[in-house]
Amino acid sequence: SKDTIRINGIDIDVKDLHEEWKRLVEEALKRGDEELAIELLERALKE
């Protein structure tokens, strides 16, 4: 798994994120759902 995830052309540092969150965000991006990916990231970062 990578340490960054690219959303809207912005590389976001996710190395401190739990693997499960990372996977969910990557799944959302694979489906092209950037809005969901951002929402998941925000939730993950609050934890």
Score class of each variant (00 low, 15 high):
E34D: 11
L41N: 00
L45E: 05
S1L: 14
E26N: 14
I12C: 05
L24Q: 10
R6H: 10
D13Q: 07
G9I: 03
H18C: 11
I7P: 01
L29G: 00
E20K: 15
L36G: 11
I10M: 12
I38P: 00
H18Y: 05
L24I: 06
A44M: 10
E39I: 14
R6L: 07
I7T: 01
W21Y: 10
I10L: 11
H18I: 09
T4W: 07
D3T: 09
W21Q: 06
I10P: 01
L29D: 00
W21G: 03
E47F: 09
E39C: 15
E39Y: 15
D3C: 11
V25H: 00
D33T: 02
E19F: 14
R23C: 03
A37E: 00
L41Q: 00
K15S: 15
T4S: 08
V14P: 03
D3L: 03
L17C: 04
I7M: 04
K22M: 10
I38V: 10
A37F: 02
K46H: 09
D11H: 05
L17P: 01
D11S: 07
D13C: 07
K30E: 13
R6C: 04
R43N: 06
K30H: 12
L40P: 00
L40I: 13
A37P: 00
D11R: 04
V25P: 00
E26H: 15
W21C: 04
E35K: 15
W21H: 04
E42W: 12
R23I: 07
D3I: 08
D3R: 05
A28H: 02
L17N: 01
R31M: 13
E20P: 14
N8H: 11
L41W: 06
R6F: 07
R31H: 10
E27A: 13
E42K: 14
A44T: 01
R43Q: 12
R23E: 05
L29M: 08
I7V: 11
I7K: 01
I5C: 02
V14M: 10
L29A: 03
T4A: 05
L17V: 09
E47S: 09
I10E: 09
E39V: 14
K2R: 12
H18A: 15
D3S: 07
D33Q: 10
L24A: 11
L36T: 08
L29K: 01
L36C: 08
K30T: 11
E26S: 12
V14R: 02
I7R: 01
L29W: 09
H18P: 14
L36R: 08
E42N: 14
G32P: 01
S1R: 08
I12M: 08
L40R: 02
E26L: 15
D33M: 10
E19Q: 12
I12F: 15
V14Q: 02
G9D: 05
E47D: 11
E39G: 07
D3M: 03
D16F: 13
K2T: 13
E35W: 12
I5A: 02
L36K: 10
L41I: 13
V25T: 01
E42R: 15
E26G: 08
D11Q: 06
D3F: 01
L17Y: 04
D11V: 09
R6K: 11
W21D: 06
E26V: 15
E34S: 13
I38T: 08
L40G: 00
E19C: 12
K22G: 04
E19Y: 15
G32H: 05
L29I: 10
N8E: 04
K22H: 04
K22E: 01
E19T: 09
L40V: 04
K2F: 14
N8Q: 09
K2A: 14
E34I: 12
A37Y: 02
E26M: 15
E20A: 14
R6W: 05
D33A: 05
I12W: 15
I7A: 02
K46E: 09
L40N: 00
K22N: 02
A44W: 13
H18E: 09
N8A: 09
R43C: 07
T4R: 05
I38S: 10
D16G: 14
E39K: 15
A44E: 01
L40E: 00
K22T: 06
L24D: 03
E27C: 14
D3K: 05
L41K: 00
L29T: 02
T4F: 13
N8V: 03
E47I: 08
K22L: 15
L41F: 05
K22A: 05
G9Y: 03
I7N: 01
L41G: 01
R6I: 08
G9R: 03
S1C: 06
N8R: 11
E27Y: 06
W21P: 02
S1G: 12
I5M: 06
K22P: 01
N8D: 06
K46C: 07
D33V: 02
D16A: 11
L17R: 01
E35P: 12
A37L: 05
E47M: 11
E39H: 13
L36S: 07
R31I: 09
S1F: 11
I5L: 13
T4N: 05
K15D: 05
L45T: 06
K2Q: 14
R6S: 11
K2W: 15
A37C: 02
N8C: 08
E35F: 13
E19P: 15
T4V: 13
I7G: 01
I7C: 04
D11K: 05
E19L: 07
D13Y: 12
L36D: 04
V14I: 15
I12A: 02
E27I: 07
I5N: 02
L40D: 00
R31F: 09
N8M: 08
R31P: 00
K46M: 12
G32N: 06
D11P: 05
D13M: 09
W21E: 03
L24G: 03
R31T: 09
R31Q: 11
V14C: 03
R6N: 11
E27H: 05
R23G: 05
E47G: 10
I10H: 09
K15W: 08
D13I: 08
E20W: 13
L17I: 13
E27D: 11
A28D: 00
D16M: 12
E20I: 14
I5E: 01
I5K: 02
E42D: 10
D11E: 10
N8K: 09
A44C: 03
A44Q: 03
S1P: 11
E19D: 10
K46S: 12
K22I: 15
I10F: 07
K2S: 14
E42M: 15
K30N: 11
R23V: 07
D11I: 08
D33Y: 06
G32R: 04
G32F: 04
I12P: 00
K15V: 05
I12K: 04
L29P: 00
I7F: 04
R31G: 08
E47R: 04
L36Q: 10
I5R: 02
L36A: 11
V25C: 02
E20S: 14
